[in-house]
């Protein structure tokens, strides 16, 4: 479990990082290393060059853009957990962050690293899907923005090209009336989820978005409560209907057995309870 020999660079600017990306085709971006480290050791990746982007000031900065918060890609889970990042989501981001892995991993692991890796069992992916986050990407061929939903192409597959960097995540500011809920089922503390339910619901406007994730398939997004609640009304979380939800997941093309579907439905139901609890 030792990596192949590689070069290591730690650029101080985005441009320098992009130059390195252009110069060495077999290169890999290194953020917190909490996913890449094990992959290197298992030789699942064998890069010639690692480009460590954690010392690029823009990538660790956070700025208020009015209707959204821009969080640099290299902001760590711990920074969010500790409220070193302004909370504009009624406490939701903090709670999600604190449930990722355990502290040692959160201290190093980054928001951008997590989204770039796009593990369907990872927390940020589901949590931010319901908030309609947008990603800011820059590359040798220019910059662009993409909504998270379109960024994820599949399990551990994204729209990011090897010649691009994820720069920041724009998280829309939540309405004061909005309620967010998150529930993760995993075997023990620090484990990736076996099932995730995430929900955002604004009783004021009726805006609703729910995500179910787990296993090795892409998270499923429900933009309407219709097929999930017996009365179709999320105001009463007890009316969340698990058999209906399991059917809805099946209809969405999830190929999972009964146990896997059941725990996803439970996670969705409990996320709803979480959202509506005082």
């Amino acid at each position: 479990m030792k990596p192949v020999a590689f070069e290591y660079e730690r650029p101080r600017t985005i441009d320098a990082a992009l130059d390195l990306l252009g110069a060495e085709s077999n290169s890999k971006i290194l953020a917190g290393g909490q996913t890449l480290g094990p992959m290197l050791n298992l030789r699942l990746v064998q890069p010639g060059l690692l480009i460590d982007i954690t010392r690029i000031p823009e990538l660790v900065s956070v700025s208020d853009e009015g209707d959204a918060l821009k969080i640099g890609a290299c902001v760590t889970h711990a920074a969010i957990e500790d409220a070193r990042v302004e909370d504009h989501s009624n406490g939701y981001l903090r709670r999600v962050a604190s449930g990722i892995a355990y502290r040692a991993v959160r201290t190093r692991g980054t928001l951008g690293g997590s989204l770039s890796h796009a593990d369907p069992a990872a927390d940020w992916l589901s949590a931010l899907l319901v908030l309609k986050a947008e990603l800011e990407i820059t590359g040798l061929d220019g910059s662009r923005r993409v909504v998270l939903k379109n960024f994820v192409r599949g399990a551990m597959e994204t729209d990011l090209s090897p010649r691009e960097l994820l720069i920041a995540v724009h998280v829309p500011r939540s309405e004061k009336t909005a309620r967010h809920g998150y529930y993760k089922i995993c075997r023990k503390t620090g484990e990736f989820a076996d099932a995730i339910g995430a929900v955002s619901f604004d009783p004021g406007s009726g805006a609703f978005c729910m995500v179910a994730a787990g296993g090795s398939e892409q998270p499923v997004t429900f933009e309407s409560p219709e097929n999930l609640f017996s009365q179709g009304d999320p105001l009463d979380p007890d009316s969340f209907d698990m058999p209906m939800a399991m059917d809805a997941l099946r209809e969405a093309g999830i190929e999972a057995d009964n146990y896997e579907l059941q725990i996803r439905a439970v996670a969705m139901s409990r996320a709803m309870q979480d959202a509506m609890s005082p």
């Binding site: 075997r187 076996d194 009964n258 146990y259 059941q262 725990i263």
Partner: peptide, 9 residues
């Protein structure tokens, strides 16, 4: 958990 859920089912 899987064994328990499946046994109940």
């Amino acid at each position: 958990p899987r064994r328990i859920v499946e046994a109940i089912a």
